[in-house]
């Protein structure tokens, strides 16, 4: 696989899997207005995923016929996040990353520039949405503060992987990306009266993580659900 394809796969899988996780909220959001908001974000991400996967091959073959170990998304996006606070925390951590990454890609001259120019606008809104909710949950009630604190701490150990250089993206300055991300996340957390976690940002395991095709236990279950219908009818068109 060419480096550009590898990069498209990594970014495409990120968007595909997070979109799927957000789609799980349909009918379960804390308020109706938020149903609409979460679906908008999920649809933006699904659009990004389809554009990126199509650069590599057939989008459906890639989404439905790869096994778990062939997915290259970061582990952060595959976390179940059934508590709304966890979903907000994940959105904050991931959309800040995506926005900074697409910002750099949009400014560079590479194969992803046109796609990034669109995605950077979308992710700016995702970041804003996550920020608004982080502020309200962090600085809302004692209960919401506690849920938000636990959520950010629980996901913190998946954030180190975001800055692992992705093959095929030579235009990205990963150190600058990390600095931007840390600054922005810190700013929002502080305004939300939440402490920036001090724990490790990745697990101590030589096997690696999502970018190496090593995922967390809930991911296999998620893929089983996502892929089973497509795989039950080999060769069918939908």
């Amino acid at each position: 696989m060419s480096p550009a394809h590898a990069a498209a796969l990594a970014l495409g899988d990120d968007a595909l899997i997070l979109s799927h996780r957000l789609g799980e909220w349909a009918g379960r959001a804390p308020v109706l207005e938020e149903e609409v908001a979460l679906a908008n974000i999920a649809l933006d991400l699904l659009g990004q995923a389809r554009a990126l996967l199509s650069l590599v091959g057939d989008e459906d073959e890639l989404a439905y016929l790869r096994d778990e170990r062939a997915f290259r998304n970061v582990q952060l996006v595959e976390q179940p996040c059934e508590d709304f606070a966890a979903t907000v925390a994940r959105q904050l951590l991931f959309s800040t990353y995506q926005h900074a990454l697409y910002g750099q890609l949009a400014g560079a001259d590479g194969p992803f520039t046109p796609l990034a120019a669109k995605a950077v606008k979308e992710t700016a809104y995702h970041r804003d949405h996550a920020e608004q909710w982080t502020l309200r949950l962090g600085d809302g009630t004692a209960e919401s503060h506690e849920r938000m604190r636990r959520a950010v701490e629980g996901l913190w150990r998946f954030t180190g992987e975001l800055f692992q250089p992705v093959e095929g993206l030579p235009e990205i300055d990963w150190q600058a990306l990390r600095a931007t991300w840390t600054e922005r996340v810190t700013d929002v957390l502080e305004r939300a009266t939440l402490a920036v976690p001090t724990g490790p940002q990745s697990a101590a395991w030589a096997a690696g993580a999502g970018r190496q095709g090593v995922h967390t236990e809930p991911f296999g279950r998620m893929l089983a659900e996502m892929q089973h219908l497509h795989r039950s009818h080999p060769g069918a068109t939908w």
Partner: peptide
Amino acid sequence: SLHAPDAELALRNARDLYTR
């Protein structure tokens, strides 16, 4: 119309609901 806890979220909810 729509429901929102404050003006900032009202604007965002309006964007999501009435301009999608």
